[in-house]
Structure formats: C-alpha cells, structure tokens
C-alpha cells in the first residue's frame, strides 16, 4: 500500500502531493512545510557524509511506514511514503518518473518548476498507485 507521493522541485518547493491510502488530511500549508523540511534534511544528509559527497537520503524506515526518495539529474525529488512491507519501491518511483516525463514535461501548458496540475498525470498516477 502506497500512502502518499510528494514531488519537490530543485529549489525544494512542493510541486505535487497526493494521498493514495488512508492517511490523515493536512492543510495545504502543512504539506508545503513537510516538503521543505524533507528537502532541508536531504541537503544536510548529503553534507554529512564523512567520505566524499553523498546522494542524500534514499530510504527512511520506521515501524509504521517507510519513505523512499528518488532524485533526478535535474534535482527534482520524488518521494513516496508506503507500508513498511511494500516491495520494490525503486521500481514504483521509476514508473512515477516515467509518467512525469510523459504527462508533465511533454504537456505544453505546464510551466517547469511550477505546481503540477495535469489531469492525465493525476489519472495515470491513480491507476499506478491507487490500490
């Protein structure tokens, strides 16, 4: 079960968030705050590496959920929060990235780095992640 998906642009601003499981709804600002907090933690983590530079946070595991992050070459971050037993989050993130390159980046009405409002992207994500 995937609980939610967050997409951050390279400046760390939340550009997409949606829930796919039974999660508590937060206010719009709370999601933005969570996104920026994660972005900062990710930046700190990548500086903490004792040997050379690190890629930052890739996986956070807890008793009740796990969070997996994928960063593209342009600095866009995708992270999903899922059930701790969920297998192959890597593949799921890869599929989400593919949908993003198709239905967001090839959409002439999408302005890069801005929030994503694309019906087709929503629909394809729902098909991929919803139950």
């Amino acid at each position: 079960m995937i609980y939610s998906l967050y997409i951050l642009n390279k400046a760390g601003t939340l550009i997409y968030q949606n829930d796919y499981g039974p999660t508590e709804k937060l206010s719009h600002n709370a999601y933005i705050r969570l996104g920026s907090t994660f972005h900062s933690l990710h930046a700190i983590a990548s500086n903490l590496s004792p040997a050379g530079s690190s890629s930052g946070i890739e996986l956070i595991e807890t008793e009740t959920f796990k969070l997996q992050c994928f960063q593209t070459h342009t600095g866009t971050k995708f992270y999903i929060i899922a059930d701790p037993n969920h297998p192959n989050l890597d593949e799921t993130l890869q599929s989400i990235y593919e949908l993003y390159t198709d239905y967001v980046l090839k959409n002439p009405f999408y302005e890069i780095e801005m929030s994503i409002r694309c019906d087709l992207f929503d629909y394809k994500l729902q098909r991929l992640l919803g139950d």
Binding site: K106, N107, F109, L120
Partner: peptide, 9 residues
C-alpha cells in the same frame, strides 16, 4: 496524448 488542458482553456 500527453496534453492536459488547463481549466481556463
């Protein structure tokens, strides 16, 4: 195929 129209259009 890849185009989602904005609300105003």
């Amino acid at each position: 195929k890849f185009i989602s129209l904005p609300k105003n259009l």
